[in-house]
């Protein structure tokens, strides 16, 4: 349950596969064009329900309530072994033969 005023994410299908442009590669053509937009919820609502939000630009947009307090989940990744020796090796190369 999300309350009026909560920061949420809504979802919409913009174009069904049958309405997509004909020049698309086959893999893209068989899936819909979808959109997600964040904003403040205008009335209480449940996940999966049609709701209305006010976005950061002030637009009022409706769509299916997808997430409450949507969080960015991208991060710094894992240490990557293939990268870890690059720095130390270059430093060694710089020190070697320096006058």
């Amino acid at each position: 349950m999300a309350e009026k005023g909560d920061w949420v994410k809504i979802h919409n299908v913009v174009l069904d596969p049958s309405n997509r442009v004909s020049s698309l590669p086959a893999d893209t053509k068989k899936v819909p064009l979808e959109a997600w937009i964040n904003g403040f919820l205008n009335e209480d609502g449940e996940i999966g329900e049609m709701v209305e939000i006010t976005t950061l630009s002030g637009r009022i947009v409706s769509g299916t309530l997808a997430e409450v307090n949507p969080r960015y989940i991208h991060d710094f990744g894992n240490p990557v072994p293939e990268l870890l020796k690059i720095g130390p090796n270059l430093k060694k190369q710089l020190e070697e033969g320096s006058v």
């Binding site: 020049s23 819909p32 064009l33 979808e34 959109a35 964040n38 976005t55 637009r59 989940i73």
Partner: peptide
């Protein structure tokens, strides 16, 4: 995702779409 986060942090509305040139239509 990071670039979208930055836009939002500067106060913009961000529309996140799936792949396709119809972004232009939107």
């Amino acid at each position: 995702l990071e670039k979208g986060r930055a836009c939002e942090a500067y106060g913009a509305e961000v529309v996140q779409l799936t792949v396709g040139p119809e972004l232009f239509y939107y």
